[in-house]
Amino acid sequence: MAVSLRKILPFLLVLIPAFGFAHGVTSADQELLRSDSLWAYMQVGATHMLTGYDHLLFLAGVVFYLNGIKDILKFITVFTIGHCITLISATYAGITANEHLVDAVIALSVLYKGFENLGGFKKLNVKAPNLLLMVGVFGLIHGFGLSTRLQSFDMGQDHILAKILCFNLGVEIGQVLALIPIVFIITFSRRHRQFTAFYKAVNWYLVLAGIGLFLYQMYGYFNGIE
């Protein structure tokens, strides 16, 4: 079944605004968390994932490379386990780092995925690292990013573990919600004869976005932008 680009573009338009909110963790979120309800933590976790474009770009990169739902589930599960480990443990232990530096590394993960999808390692005659392993490693890094963000909020002193777990659950819900349109668009685009051009365009975009986000975060780091 041939699906025209005209049909795909509206879905892209639906998806892409979600990329644009630049970690939309807002002071409204802080107010929400101040209610101290676990539901609020779940809500903020989901919001953060749905509006955190770097996480979504990376996930899009992972899904683009894979064929078949089974593969997608396997890689997403590894990514999920990775980010759960660091999100929960780093937050609980109070381990944090400069957000710009963490986000810079996450930006590099986006760049990496685009580069790998475009066969960059092959072109350089370098053996690409195990993809599943790299997705797991990047999962850990993304989890640390989520943890750093969560720790930027006043979480109070009570039920810390429950709050972290609820935030984490919210992240997973957000991830599933984000993945639905991503998988949908990519699956349908595969059937289009212009898929190769679309594939290259999106993955080159990931490379450029990765570089751009990395430079942006480094600029923020060196200029002390909060």
Binding site: I16, P17, F19, G20, F21, A22, H23, G24, V25, T26, S27, A28, D29, Q30, Y53, E99, R149, S152, F153, Y216, G220, I225, E226
Partner: peptide, 16 residues
């Protein structure tokens, strides 16, 4: 709604 830590970040419309 506004960015908690990221008021100086890329405006949404620019990014989209």
């Amino acid at each position: 709604a506004h960015d908690h830590e990221h008021e100086d970040h890329i405006p949404t419309w620019v990014f989209v």
